[in-house]
Design a protein around this nucleic acid. Structure first.
Ligand SMILES: [Mn+2]
Ligand SMILES: [Mn+2]
Ligand SMILES: [Zn+2]
Ligand SMILES: [Zn+2]
Lengths: 130, 130
DNA sequence: TTTATACTGAAATTAATAATCATTATTATT
DNA sequence: AATAATAATGATTATTAATTTCAGTATAAA
């Protein structure tokens, strides 16, 4: 039997939590949420399963600087806006430019799997309170 | 006197090292290089100055997942290709699409400072040895 | 040249994540 | 349904990059 083949309640709960939010939470936030359903779950298990689900292509891991990783229940590539004040990560409804990958491949000869595009700035609410 | 106002040899050497390479090195690599010129420099000082130079807008810090930050002596926005095998970070000669920032601002009302675009895949040499 | 303090090296500390390991739960096989 | 094989777990410890601390030093203003 191979890695990631057994469906445990921990795995299921973690994936559901991610699929039911659009906040791009940290591992610790997922852990706190999961504890409300499975009080004995451990943080190690959360990290283990987040990595597993990422490797299986069911979720995405997003890193922003030296801090915690954020996790995204949507495994399909899309773009984000990161507020530098409140640290919120927001989905952007922009069409993914797949041509770009091809352009790089032609120009440089690299094999391109995917690309990542992020915008940094201040969200609406953070612009107000200044 | 304010932070970052004194020009020390440590600061100067670190900036020069970054400006004279296009390899997007890690803090530790910068440290090893700096030691050849200033044998008594400490790793803490390297980190301190890298953060300082970043805050002053003279260099860029690039983070890729769970690993060390990479530093870029070019403070002007440009795009990168990251090889997932050898972990090399390569500059791309693509024109920066400033219109994108404006597009996000209009569509969502966010204040956009900058954006980051990265491509992931395999570089030429890593494609060969398979 | 004196003085104020920004900066340093060395060491200790933090914080996120990964690894270890004995135990438990899941799934295939009987 | 009972059994067996082993993937996954919870608890704990370890790892690693980066930050903080602090007494001493170097820089630059006066
Ligand atoms: Mn998203
Ligand atoms: Mn670069
Ligand atoms: Zn905000
Ligand atoms: Zn490579």
């Amino acid at each position: 039997m191979k890695l990631g083949s057994r469906t445990t309640k921990q795995k299921r709960v973690i994936l559901e939590i991610l699929q039911n939010t659009d906040t791009h939470p940290t591992a610790d936030w997922v852990y706190q949420e999961a504890r409300q359903i499975l009080p004995d779950i451990s943080l190690g298990t959360v990290y283990r399963n987040l990595n597993l689900l990422r490797d299986l292509g069911k979720i995405q891991e997003l890193n922003y600087g030296s801090g915690q990783s954020r996790y995204d229940g949507n495994p399909v590539n899309h773009y984000h806006f990161v507020c530098e004040k409140c640290k919120k990560v927001l989905d952007l409804d922009l069409s993914v430019v797949v041509d770009l990958d091809e352009e790089i491949r032609e120009k440089y000869g690299f094999q391109v799997f995917n690309h990542r595009l992020e915008f940094y700035g201040l969200c609406k609410t953070c612009q107000e309170d200044d």
